[in-house]
Amino acid sequence: MRDDAHSQRGDVKRTDGKAVSRVSVVDESPPRPGPPEGAADEEYRWHSYAVHPSGRPDAVRFVDTYKSFGRSHVLRGLNMALPEGMVSMILGPSGTGKSVCIKHMVGLLYPDSGDVLVHGRSVPDMPDDELFEMRKKFGLLFQDGALFGSMNLFDNVAFPLRQHTEKGDDEIEEIVMRRLNEVGLGDSRTRMPNELSGGMRKRAGFARALVLEPDILLFDEPDSGLDPVRTALLGELILEIHREMIEEAKRKQREHLPTFCVVTHDIMSARRVADYINVLWKGRIVEAGPAEEMLGSENPFIRQFLSGESQGPLTMD
């Protein structure tokens, strides 16, 4: 499948005549990939595909990933990496397939072609048993927390521990209360999810995602439906917990440093929280790199998007 995708794009390159020869010995930078099948080169003119190095190994890597739902092509040859031990952002305008990326990482969706690697292992190729095992590496915070409506807050947060560990009730209680206190919900342990506000549900989902001490934590639009102050506080909480987890991982000499990935279109939180930014548009990365370099990018699209201005290449269509 992947070879097909390559050759199709190779054809497009040849027909529009702009591509550099693949066997060039003079030009050392990789040739600019052609647009996906059925798209004009014009649509992808702001995609510089530049990736500023992070200097870290990749926790997650998308390789030429394509994914369509019926006639809507969501991922169109996505190449993207989340460096280990950093807080990465996948930033992009609404409806560009950011949440779809997350579902690919945990194997809830499979790519039509291409590959998704987690710590170097291909997710689409994993047999079911291995996939269930691999998912324990992940903590995932869903948009609305995705708490189980039939359980109270404590049981929700304790659920992964009861499911996957042999820990006794006392130990579970201790871990759960530590996490609930961390997210500021220690007093609400007996409340049911429908008695909580949106922000509280998100924080509870965060606590639940943390209890198994995952290597990779994914946040699906943590700022949706929150006011700016709560968003800022949540951002701070994310940073604080990331710092703690890094220290703990170093102390315990774990194989992988904890990687956080926040999917959002909120530029303010990106500026505050991100170490590494991937800008996603039309199913591909426009440009990616450490936050400082991205904020100083010359690319007009990136500049417009990161400053949130109405003037620039990105329009309502």
């Binding site: 998912r135 609305d144 189980f148």
Partner: peptide, 18 residues
Amino acid sequence: GARKIREELDALEVLGVD
């Protein structure tokens, strides 16, 4: 259906529950 919409089913799967 309501659990699917609230992403509870996805959450279950990610938490390793079939």
